[in-house]
Amino acid sequence: MSALICGSFAYDTIMVFPGQFKHEILPDKVHMLNVSFLVPQLRREFGGCAGNIAYNLKLLGGAPLPMGTVGKDFDRYQEWLDRNDISRQYIKMIPEAYTAQAYITTDLDDNQITAFHPGAMNHAHEQPVPAKGVKIGTVSPDGREGMIQHAKQFFEAGIPFLFDPGQGLPMFGGDDLKSFLTQASYVAVNDYECEVLMERTGWSQKQIAERVDALIVTRGGKGASIFARGKVHEIPCAKADSLTDPTGCGDAFRGGLLYGLLKGLDWDTTGRIGSLLGAYNIERPGTQNHGFTIDEFRARFKAEFRYDFA
């Protein structure tokens, strides 16, 4: 059950603004924007897409192989991975760089403003995809050249992979995105990112879905839609006990997708596993602070969706 998860490792500095951005930003003055938000709450967390997805897949009993480049300040993160028995086999240290850093401010509407320093992530292309020992892969937000090369390497090795552009989407134009969509087996985006994909490629949602085995579009509190082989699977949003922090919910959902794909589950079940992982994530601050046993997860899944999974 090995999944090679190509993407970023980062330290997340997460701040919560106890208000709404829409009340602080004047739409007719965005050309001269100069705002400051008082953020009484601040946390520093382990993050990055590769780390987050791997953490969630590991909780389900999967065998994640996160792959990324990190910096000279990775010691604390390395200890965390070891405590959670997550492989560091494909993590490469770049001594002259810092590990990527994200500074995330969230408002009460779950909107986010993020500043990101890529650091060692810019060396992602120095890590090649191994040709053997991997059942499935992901190309998640990472260095630009790394994402391009890893997609090509997965494709040439015949390893199916999930294209998960996320916050890396602005780095690519239409031709780049068409290449990713031609090589990928699966694509996972949120509803806004799907609109960007369509605008930049000139392809409709239907045309994108026809080029891959499945197009997964998440819609926050409205659930998700999975377009696969001409059929649409509507995935409900799992009920969360509290709405503490949305940061990392998309990565949690993708951990569920990988689990379902590795186990050969149907799309309705796979999507619901991802949905429930997102609920666990949003109930706790940060992206790697939730936890459960597989029996606890199964019991909650059955209570939520009225059936069990294999």
Rank of each mutant, 00 (worst) to 15 (best):
L276M: 03
A157L: 05
T99I: 10
I94R: 12
E283C: 07
A188P: 00
R254M: 02
K222D: 13
D308T: 13
E24H: 14
P130E: 04
K239T: 10
A120K: 08
N111A: 10
A209M: 08
G143I: 09
G137T: 09
R83T: 06
S2E: 10
D109C: 04
K263F: 02
Q205R: 15
K135P: 00
K231E: 15
K206L: 09
V70G: 07
L65F: 07
R88A: 05
A97S: 13
N111C: 08
D12H: 13
S179N: 14
P246Q: 03
D82Q: 13
M67E: 02
G71C: 07
P95C: 11
F37T: 02
L215C: 04
M1S: 14
F297C: 03
D175G: 02
L197C: 10
M171L: 15
G202L: 04
A124I: 01
V134L: 00
L108P: 01
N122R: 11
L59T: 01
I216L: 12
F155R: 08
M121T: 12
D73N: 15
A3K: 10
G220H: 10
E45T: 01
H290D: 06
M198Q: 15
V139P: 11
G255A: 12
N289V: 00
F37E: 09
V189A: 12
R43D: 08
D213V: 01
P130R: 08
E304R: 11
K231R: 15
R272S: 06
Q167V: 03
Q101M: 13
T138K: 11
W203T: 04
L265C: 08
D142L: 14
P165I: 10
W80S: 06
S8F: 06
Q101E: 14
L42R: 14
W80V: 08
E156D: 13
F46T: 00
D75Y: 11
L81R: 09
D191H: 14
P170I: 08
F154S: 09
L169V: 06
S242E: 12
F116M: 04
S225K: 13
N122F: 00
D109L: 11
E199C: 05
D75K: 14
M32C: 04
G274R: 08
F305E: 08
I159A: 08
T182P: 00
G119D: 03
Q127S: 10
I159L: 10
T287C: 15
F309H: 05
R272I: 01
N190P: 05
